[in-house]
Measured scan of single mutants.
Amino acid sequence: MTEYKLVVVGAGGVGKSALTIQLIQNHFVDEYDPTIEDSYRKQVVIDGETCLLDILDTAGQEEYSAMRDQYMRTGEGFLCVFAINNTKSFEDIHHYREQIKRVKDSEDVPMVLVGNKCDLPSRTVDTKQAQDLARSYGIPFIETSAKTRQGVDDAFYTLVREIRKHKEKMSKDGKKKKKKSKTKCVIM
């Protein structure tokens, strides 16, 4: 069974824990209790493949930012979460993405942009803004509501699919490099 290491990042209060708990335990946590770091595991079937999701729910508070490099190193894919009623959390996505790329030393890291709290009427981040940002990053965008469960499975499952595509691409690139290195030079 394939294991996928997913990391949920975003500013404090955007609903990272609520999304994760909704996926794992099928219930909505409405009281806000700032996370330092929590880890969850769940076995699911995605596109006919049974897999184990190892999900790291991270601290959004700035005082825990020193811990970010460590979990970013171990993560295979990242859910970059903002709240649709919090423009600052949307603007912060850029910083999370840049930090992930720096730590992973790669421009090509599996990510999904997630606009959470889409059940709320007080939207300050337009869907088109988020779609445009995701398009500019070359990553999928999904709106979710941890409260109603809308888009929750889709967000995590899409990230797994992005990781699969990335692994497939990397193995193809690896095979191309191996083929090239088999060419021999004969000096007579």
Rank of each mutant, 00 (worst) to 15 (best):
Y40R: 01
Q25A: 15
A59C: 04
A59G: 13
Y40E: 03
N26Y: 09
V14H: 10
C51G: 09
G15F: 03
Y32I: 03
G12K: 07
L23H: 14
T50V: 10
Y64L: 05
D54N: 15
Q25M: 15
L6W: 04
H27G: 14
H27A: 15
T2H: 12
N26L: 07
V29L: 09
G15D: 00
P34I: 03
V8P: 01
T20P: 03
Q61L: 11
E62V: 07
L23N: 15
D33A: 02
A18D: 06
V14S: 12
V7G: 06
K42C: 08
G13I: 10
V45N: 11
A59D: 02
D47C: 07
Q61D: 15
Q25D: 15
T50K: 10
Y40V: 02
A18Q: 15
V45F: 10
I46D: 12
G48E: 11
T2W: 08
G13W: 10
E37S: 15
S17I: 03
I24T: 06
D30Y: 08
G12R: 05
A18L: 01
I55N: 08
E3P: 15
E31F: 14
I46Q: 09
H27Y: 15
G12S: 12
D38S: 04
T20V: 10
I36F: 03
L6C: 10
S17C: 04
I24Q: 11
Y32L: 03
L23A: 14
S39E: 08
Q43K: 12
I36S: 00
V8T: 07
I36K: 00
G13R: 10
E37F: 15
E37A: 15
V14Y: 06
V45D: 12
V7Q: 07
T20Q: 02
P34N: 00
E3S: 14
V45Q: 14
I55H: 05
L53I: 14
V8F: 04
L52P: 14
T20G: 05
L53M: 10
P34Y: 04
V14A: 13
F28I: 05
A18M: 12
I36H: 00
T2P: 13
N26V: 05
Q22H: 08
A59Y: 02
A11Q: 11
N26T: 09
G60Q: 03
P34K: 02
I21F: 07
E31K: 04
Y64A: 04
P34R: 02
D57M: 02
G12N: 08
D54S: 15
V8E: 02
Y64D: 04
A59Q: 02
V45L: 12
G10A: 07
L52Y: 15
I36A: 01
E62M: 06
V8I: 09
E63C: 07
R41F: 05
V14M: 10
E49T: 13
V9Y: 06
K5P: 08
V14I: 13
C51I: 15
Q22A: 08
D57W: 01
K16L: 01
T35W: 02
K42R: 12
